[in-house]
């Protein structure tokens, strides 16, 4: 066999190593530069400008004028601000109380399923595949004062419930609907974690006399502890920013019962066209959320290493 041409080529490559390296630097730059441009233009610009805009009165026609802290004063003296913060916290709280433990519980139960496990997984995940707008339409019909749920309730002799228009029910209805849609994805993540626990651990524990509950409590749960913390933080980050369902189903009503903080931002921009205050509210939200995001970042780094 004759390797000569290859060797020759390699030698040539070696001799022009320096210029090759320089050339490679140029190429590396060429590869990265488009991404740098779009990141700068579409992510960093709005992020940085958000802070700048929060000190300006935004007017698309006459141009922006500097107003100092006025936007912040206006934002903090908004009569609905407190309601919005309360609603957001309530929404986050309900999300944890009604939604957080469900996927974990079902993941443990399904992991023990001997038959039809695949089918159980698929059906749990299927609502996730249903488009959001379809979910809005479907549940609006379910929750209707004369819809099927109330129909069944009155068949059972229970007073009909105004799921959406009663302020004390509206947020609960929204969280229930969202749990219905989203719990499958979290469940599959837990399930993968649970199934990757070595079977020997259970075997050993059983020989040592640990009952089923003790095995779950001292082997299964500790081994998915990191997942639990991670998904908890992800849920907190997601729900603290939630506004789309509230906007789509109830537009923040009834009587502002579903007006979340993020929805307040949106309303300032779309209804009152006051982009300065909206930006200021965004900055305030960022300051609070960055603490949570920082914790998540630290934890997920630990997870990877």
């Amino acid at each position: 066999m004759n390797h000569a041409p290859v060797v020759e080529k390699a030698q040539r490559a070696g001799s022009s190593y320096k210029s090759g390296k320089y050339k490679r630097y140029v190429w590396g730059f060429v590869f990265v530069i488009p991404a740098i441009i779009v990141f700068a233009l579409f992510l960093w610009t709005p992020i940085v400008k958000g802070v700048i805009y929060s000190f300006y009165n935004i007017d698309f026609v006459k141009g922006n004028t500097f107003v100092g802290w006025a936007n912040y004063e206006k934002a903090l003296s908004d009569p609905y601000l407190l309601t919005a913060v309360k609603n957001t916290l309530y929404y986050m709280f309900l999300g944890v109380v009604m939604g957080f433990w469900v996927p974990c519980l079902f993941a443990i139960a399904i992991s023990e399923l001997r038959w039809f496990q695949g089918f159980a997984r698929i059906s749990a995940y299927l609502p996730n595949v249903v488009p959001l707008v379809v979910m809005y339409g479907l549940w609006r019909w379910f929750y209707d004062p004369v819809g099927p749920i109330n129909g069944t309730l009155s068949q059972l002799g229970v007073e009909p419930i105004a799921f959406l228009t009663n302020p004390s029910w509206s947020m609960i209805s929204i969280v229930f609907m969202e749990t219905w849609q989203q719990f499958g994805s979290a469940m599959l993540i837990y399930l993968a974690g649970i199934l990757s626990v070595p079977r020997d651990h259970y075997e050993a524990a059983e020989i040592d006399g640990a009952g089923v509950w003790h095995r779950i409590r001292y082997i299964t749960l500790p081994s998915i502890k990191n997942l639990l913390i991670l998904l908890f933080l992800l849920q907190i980050i997601a729900t603290s920013q939630g506004f789309q369902t509230q906007q789509a189903l109830l537009d923040g009503g009834p009587n502002n019962a579903t007006l979340t903080f993020a929805l307040l931002i949106i309303k300032y921009a779309t209804m009152r066209l006051n982009y300065g205050v909206a930006s200021a509210l965004g900055v305030l939200m960022f300051l609070v959320l960055s603490i949570v995001a920082y914790i998540h970042f630290r934890l997920s780094n630990k997870e990877e290493s």
Binding site: F42, W44, I47, G50, I265, S279, A293
Partner: peptide, 21 residues
């Protein structure tokens, strides 16, 4: 760092500046 720090910033906080941009 320039790319990945953007992951830490919740998108809803700059949704309106994004629109203006």
């Amino acid at each position: 760092l320039f790319f990945l720090t953007t992951l830490l910033i919740p998108p809803t906080t700059y949704i309106i500046p994004n629109f203006i941009n």
